[in-house]
Design a protein around this nucleic acid. Sequence first.
DNA 1: TGTACATCAGTGAACGCGCGTTCACTGATGTAC
DNA 2: TGTACATCAGTGAACGCGCGTTCACTGATGTAC
Lengths: 203, 203
Amino acid sequence: MKRTGRAQKVNTEVRQEQIAEAALDVVAVHGMKGLSVAAVADRVGLVPSAIYRHYRSKGALLDTVLKLIGDRLQANVTIVCEETADPLDRLQRLVARHVKLIEENRAIPSVVFSDEVYGGSSERREKVSGSIGRYLAQIERLVREGQTQGRIRPTLRPRTVAVMILGIIQPAAILAHLSGGEFDLIRHGREAWDLLRSALEAD
Amino acid sequence: MKRTGRAQKVNTEVRQEQIAEAALDVVAVHGMKGLSVAAVADRVGLVPSAIYRHYRSKGALLDTVLKLIGDRLQANVTIVCEETADPLDRLQRLVARHVKLIEENRAIPSVVFSDEVYGGSSERREKVSGSIGRYLAQIERLVREGQTQGRIRPTLRPRTVAVMILGIIQPAAILAHLSGGEFDLIRHGREAWDLLRSALEAD
DNA sequence: TGTACATCAGTGAACGCGCGTTCACTGATGTAC
DNA sequence: TGTACATCAGTGAACGCGCGTTCACTGATGTAC
């Protein structure tokens, strides 16, 4: 990542997005500990102080990255709802997309569960909490639809099911990372969903 | 946490444990970001440099804390195996104990999934990976026992089930923390286990 | 039982590194006339 | 179409804070004789 000569001037809105993406890349490679302003700047081909032309602070950059991630999760919900009408199929596809999103973006768990969020300002924690809450609410909605249509057992609490669906993906993502890619994320997603689905389906 | 006067001299082995416990406390209250040598020393009633009489470095302290956590997880497996012989009951009790352990020790997820482990030296990551791997292996063993006894469907892959059991607890723990204790961890543990159990049981 | 010495935990001052952030300056690009 | 000026992204040096770590010193406790 050598910088040679002066960087080209680029419109702030474009740079902001470049920088946020670069931050995700840096985390994917070097982990949250490696997420320094210098590293991000380097990746974009800028000097560290240049970052401050586009973000008020490192925290503001982090907030943007978090929003980016939240938006992508939300987008998946929209997409699967367009792909199929069947609630169980929607859930199945959502799991698959979530797994794929994390596979292609190894940085996501690191960022979302980082100390900066997890132990940081209550404001940032509340924002992430809200983001996850909205995602869960969408899943619950799908579950309820399935119950209305008699496809999912009506005695199940939608929230419990929604959190269990997160539970298919999250530990798997962490194991995949810790084990250095030895763990088969996609396979687990498929098998765990099949198992959960059999428990959800109405007789 | 005022220190008044010189601290009492205490045997190293005792101090080491005090310090490790103090570290867990500090993380529980202030998160991983708040885990400084100074904060830990303060909690024990020592001066920061005194920590180095008992640990070679902050990293060595962290390793001890990780071992402490790993040991407590392992202990739960031993206990539930003594409490009952039925594989499904063992698993159920293990889930309950795991949930309780995290409820009483909010620091655990913060430490285990911290950047220091997650993005840190591969050596530390491998140690934690091994710890979790061993825990999973124990759960798999219980699942296999259940299958041998015809209580659990033989077509299920033990590893998938084991990871799903982690998946009951882990996202719940994170939600509980992020939402500021609004999320009912124990209730989720119970309901999610009931749902999973119905999917596991042989007809 | 008393004395001299070794050991070892605790102390406080100081160091140094990493890193986020600031600031005066540069130079390119767009705009007004 | 050309000139003067304003705007704004990029630069590099410097600052300062937090924090892990070191080190010479202290003083209590245990041990040898």
